[in-house]
């Protein structure tokens, strides 16, 4: 019987000690795999609306932006164009509704913009390419996955959602070797 070896990426001893030794390149160089820094601020703001912080961390604290960025450079690569267009569309809708970019809106205004997207009736040229509702569903699902999925994919930092749900993680569980003794 032959088993596939998984590509086991070890993280525990990876060296990052030189992190602070090298000079910085331009302040606008993107720290993200796919997004520009500006894109990332926008996506971060959208995800925080989808799962806002309250007594428990929200999407921002849980690093959902890192999940989406990482996956758009990997398994969700096929959705890149939807994001490129969709992010332009979000700001178009935002300007049409409130005259300003999404990230600078008050939280209540941001909610209104996203509700407009969700309804499929958002204003913006870009939404001729894909419906605003379809893009909203996409980013909503990715936010949920980044927040509620396993931390190994870049989101759910500090296992925030598992803690919120009271789930032991990693689960404390042994094998059945021994009979119950007490």
């Amino acid at each position: 019987m032959k088993y596939n070896r998984r590509r086991f990426v070890k993280t525990v001893a990876a060296g990052v000690g030189g992190a602070f030794l090298l000079p910085a390149r331009g302040a606008d160089a993107s720290v993200w795999r796919f997004f520009t820094n500006a894109d990332a601020r926008l996506v971060d703001a959208i995800t925080e609306q989808i799962i806002p912080a309250d007594q428990d961390p929200g999407a921002r604290d849980a690093g959902v932006i890192n999940f989406i960025d990482k996956q758009l450079a990997g398994r969700l690569r096929r959705h890149r164009q939807a994001y490129r267009d969709g992010l332009i569309g979000v700001d178009e809708t935002s300007r049409a509704m409130f005259g300003r970019e999404f990230v600078v809106l008050a939280p209540e205004q941001q909610t209104e913009v996203l509700k407009a997207l969700e309804s499929g009736k958002a204003k913006g040229e870009t939404w001729r390419k894909q419906s605003s509702a379809a893009f909203f569903r996409l980013i909503r699902d990715h936010t949920m996955a980044g927040f509620y999925g396993g931390p190994q994919h870049g989101g759910n930092r500090g296992y925030a959602s598992y803690k919120m749900l009271g789930l032991d993680y990693p689960q404390i569980i042994g094998q059945n070797r021994y009979r119950r003794r007490s």
Partner: peptide, 10 residues
């Protein structure tokens, strides 16, 4: 989505 969705989840 939003706060109400999170409340429900919790």
């Amino acid at each position: 989505w939003g706060k109400a969705h999170k409340d429900f989840q919790r």
